[in-house]
């Protein structure tokens, strides 16, 4: 009886609080919100301060990405497409860099003019593309029989995981130029991508190690008994299984990577968050914080959802269960 009463009270108050907040949100949406800060700046959110007459380039890239995402998620039944798709996904990232930076007949655009949604996606995809092989290398290094490689890899992984990303990003901006020979300069975007890559690779290596350790020793023995070399065993027996096991964790890394790109705004890159802050600094849009941050949250949510769907496809593709289902 008594516990029932408490339960009912709790439920009623939760419903009440929920309805009340809903009311506040609606009130704000209907009477006080002004979305001009979003609608009037859509090109800025999308492309940053990319030269107006060249905006078709990031636009084209985003359209290609959207197209690839749609075909990946909705899987049309074209037979050639299964083979082309992974190559397309890897290729589209350097293509983006090429389209944005220009050259080869395109007008060169300096990286400090890149920005907005385009830059966010570019930072994320470039870092992911570079960090993945590097992470695999460190994961392999950590299992190496050569002490030097083994301890260097372990040290690297532990050190990078012990330092907050934001300090690595600052270090990267300051230190990377010192490591380069005199006269060679690299821009802020590249420095950011390098720092990101180095950071994420350590986490990827750990995730892969998790998968690696789940593989029973008997698999290695079977492979050795067949005369496969150490390298062949890693390539054909361990990595395919370890990566499959690690994939959910790697998906998490990818989503974390996306969200961490927003830290770049502190370093002065005008990716989504950075461009939003500079829009907010414009006196015309003074005080429109909530609209901008709601809008930003929405965009990040959409990107995350699309990424999660895409990686879900990858998980499906590599899962043995699915291959078995296809078979029967």
């Amino acid at each position: 009886m008594f516990s029932n009463l408490i339960n009912s009270l709790v439920v009623i108050s939760i419903v009440f609080i929920f309805l009340f907040s809903l009311l506040l949100v609606f009130k704000w949406l209907l009477f006080s919100s002004q979305w001009g800060v979003v609608t009037q700046n859509l090109p800025l959110y999308a492309f940053g301060v990319f030269p107006v007459d060249q905006r078709w380039r990031p636009c084209l890239w985003l359209l290609i990405l959207a197209f690839l995402s749609i075909v990946t998620i909705f899987k049309p039944r074209w037979s050639w497409f299964g083979k082309v798709l992974p190559i397309a996904w890897v290729g589209v990232i350097p293509l983006g860099v090429g389209l944005l930076s220009g050259g080869l007949g395109l007008l060169p655009v300096e990286s400090r003019h890149w920005g907005g949604f385009t830059l966010t996606i570019l930072l994320m995809s470039c870092s992911a593309l570079l960090a993945f092989p590097l992470g695999i290398m460190f994961a392999i290094g950590r299992q190496s029989k050569l002490p030097l490689i083994k301890y260097f890899s372990a040290l690297y992984i532990d050190a990078l995981r012990a330092v907050p990303l934001i300090s690595i990003l600052f270090f990267g901006q300051l230190l990377i130029p010192l490591f380069l020979p005199l006269g060679v300069e690299i821009n802020r975007v590249s420095r950011a991508v390098i720092s990101f890559t180095l950071f994420v690779a350590a986490y990827i290596a750990e995730d892969i190690r998790g998968g690696w350790q789940a593989i029973p020793n008997s698999q290695l023995e079977a492979s050795k008994a067949l005369g496969l070399s150490q390298a062949q065993t890693i390539r054909f027996i361990i990595l395919p299984q370890a990566l499959t096991i690690a994939l959910p964790a790697l998906t998490n890394q990818a989503i974390g990577l996306l969200q961490n790109t927003s830290l770049m705004s502190i370093l002065g890159l005008v990716e989504l968050l950075g461009i939003s802050r500079s829009i907010l600094a414009n006196p015309v849009f003074i005080g429109r914080y909530i609209e901008v941050y709601v809008w930003l949250a929405g965009i990040y949510w959409v990107i995350c959802t699309v990424m999660a769907l895409l990686l879900r496809q990858l998980e499906e593709k590599v899962s043995i269960q699915r291959r078995i289902r296809k078979n029967v």
Partner: peptide
């Protein structure tokens, strides 16, 4: 050892097939 393994096959109690390969 590798020269030997190329000419000697082994069958294990638990089969030890590679689950990710057909």
């Amino acid at each position: 050892i590798r020269a030997i393994r190329r000419k000697v096959g082994m069958v294990f109690q638990q089969f030890n097939l590679f689950p990710h390969l057909s």
